[in-house]
Design a protein around this nucleic acid. Structure first.
Lengths: 223, 223
DNA sequence: GTCTATAGTCTGATAGAC
DNA sequence: GTCTATCAGACTATAGAC
């Protein structure tokens, strides 16, 4: 499909735009700034991507494809091993949310810049963003939803959906956590650790997510 | 300080801007659009607020003051009742996060429009937004942090901070939950319930948060 | 206090030379 | 494919009449 050694200008634009969008949002970033920092011509964005909107989509899509295909691959693997039996909730949670955090440790995927961007974009109500997410997430969410339903047959499905939503939020804030709590609250981690190191963050998050997922059902769900 | 019966133009601008910011973000909303929808003159924003940036701050500040003073009031009340003994984690969590969700049910505080705006703004890295949050949240977070430390003396403080962060995220996504999961995933709640009814949502969230907060510590924290 | 008119700057996009 | 030059429109902010 693509020549092996293509890509200089196009990828430079993608990388630069990704970094700037993460810092300033796509609204707050002009094409002039992107091309200026990238050292390419202003017109090249329109030549390669057609419009700014398409550039935003391309930036997101490049990473989402990697993220979600890895999630699907892991789920395939787990289900093959289980041979038809339901998976353990912890396996599902790790495959979905752990994959996201492990991506943050992968410089090849620009994890440390892409993940804050992903988080900010998740809550962006623009139509063209919502459309992209709906498309990119459709398969993965369908598969994981069914896996969770099978893993937790006694929990009402509406409850599982809500808890999935809560887990999404906790994970999002885990990703931007270092920035957010520190800047808003001035709280500091007094221990000698790197809080943005996913090897430390992941077990913390997993423990929290599984505690929440398995917690007693609220009175509401006693249908 | 303020005349009892003042406020038409100024409050109309605040209300309109709040609604538009929630839908489109403050970047994506122009003063022309605000004044157009509000039916006031373009120049009146600068007259009443000085600049667009100040208007954004005023919109946020108006609600944050109500939210956080209620949080402080509840904590005062709880601590007075406890007479020096540590509070229960569930009391603290409900006073902090429950107050946020109960605001969503209060039409007088425009909860259903303000809360999505709050969520989107939380992750906005603009300096003038961060400065506002730091200022508005300083007291509340200091008080609640200490209450949690006292309530959970056996849990390492760094762990408590992280779990607080995770709870913030879960709550944020609980607020925008109806929109997010539904539009991105197409998932529907098949039961006959109003998912955005906080009387149903609150117990669900509380159950999840407390399950996460109390879950076994990850190996990391075995310091 | 409210308005009109406009200054001054920025935006995304494109036509056309090379 | 890459560039310059530029268009047409949007923006915030303000000066000044009423």
């Amino acid at each position: 499909m693509q020549e092996i050694r293509s890509s200089t200008t196009r990828d430079t634009i993608l990388d630069t735009a990704e970094a700037l969008f993460a810092q300033q949002g796509h609204d707050g970033t002009s094409m002039r700034q992107i091309t200026g920092v990238a050292g390419v011509n202003l017109a090249s964005v329109n030549y390669h991507f057609g419009s700014k909107e398409s550039l935003v989509q391309a930036v997101l899509k490049r990473r989402l494809e990697v993220l979600n295909s890895e999630r699907l691959r892991l789920l395939d693997e787990l289900e093959a091993q289980a041979q038809g039996k339901p998976l353990k909730p912890s396996q599902i949670v790790d495959a979905f949310f752990g994959t996201l955090l492990r991506l943050a440790a992968d410089p090849a995927q620009a994890g440390s810049t892409f993940l804050p961007l992903l988080e900010r974009t998740m809550t962006d109500p623009s139509d063209f963003i919502r459309a992209l997410f709906a498309k990119e997430y459709a398969d993965v969410l369908e598969r994981y939803r069914n896996a969770l339903f099978a893993a937790l047959p006694d929990v009402p499905r509406a409850e599982i959906m809500w808890r999935f939503q809560f887990m999404l939020g906790a994970t999002s804030y885990a990703i931007i956590g270092t920035d957010l709590l520190r800047s808003v609250t001035g709280w500091t981690v007094d221990e000698a650790e790197q809080p943005d190191n996913p090897e430390l963050l992941l077990p913390r998050l997993m423990s929290f997510l599984l505690g929440g997922l398995r917690s007693p059902l609220p009175p509401v769900s006693g249908a």
